Computed example of a mutant assay.
Amino acid sequence: MSGPQLILASASPRRRELLAQIGVKFDVFPLALAEVPEAGESPEAYVRRVAREKAEAGWSASGATRPVLGADTEVVLDGEIFGKPRDLEHGVWMLKRLSGRAHRVLSAVSLCTDGGHSQVLSVSEVSFRDIAEAEVRAYWASGEPRDKAGAYAIQGLGAIFVRHLSGSYSGVMGLPLYETAGLLSQSGIPILTPDSA
Rank of each mutant, 00 (worst) to 15 (best):
G3C: 10
P4I: 09
L6V: 06
L6R: 14
I7F: 04
I7E: 11
I7N: 13
L8I: 06
L8S: 12
L8G: 15
L8W: 05
R14Y: 03
R16M: 06
L18S: 12
A20C: 05
A20H: 07
Q21E: 08
K25G: 09
D27N: 04
D27H: 04
A32K: 12
E35H: 06
V36W: 08
A39N: 15
S42K: 14
S42P: 04
P43V: 00
E44A: 04
R48T: 05
R49I: 02
R52A: 12
K54M: 04
A55G: 13
A55V: 01
E56M: 11
A57K: 13
A57C: 05
A64N: 11
T65K: 15
T65M: 03
T65I: 10
G70Q: 08
D72P: 05
E74K: 07
V75A: 12
V75Y: 00
D78H: 12
I81M: 03
F82A: 01
E89L: 03
E89F: 02
E89Q: 09
L95A: 11
R97T: 00
R101G: 00
R104P: 00
L106H: 07
L106N: 04
G115Y: 05
H117V: 07
S118V: 15
Q119T: 14
Q119N: 13
S122W: 01
F128H: 08
A132W: 09
E133S: 08
A134H: 13
E135D: 14
E135H: 14
E135N: 15
V136W: 05
R137F: 00
R137T: 01
R137M: 03
A138D: 14
K148N: 01
G150E: 02
Y152G: 03
A153S: 14
G158P: 13
G158S: 09
I160F: 08
I160Q: 10
F161Q: 14
F161I: 02
R163D: 01
R163F: 01
G167H: 10
Y169S: 07
G171W: 01
M173N: 07
G174C: 06
G174Q: 03
G174K: 02
L177C: 11
Y178N: 09
L184N: 15
S185P: 02
Q186K: 14
G188V: 09
I189D: 13
I189N: 13
L192K: 14
P194T: 11
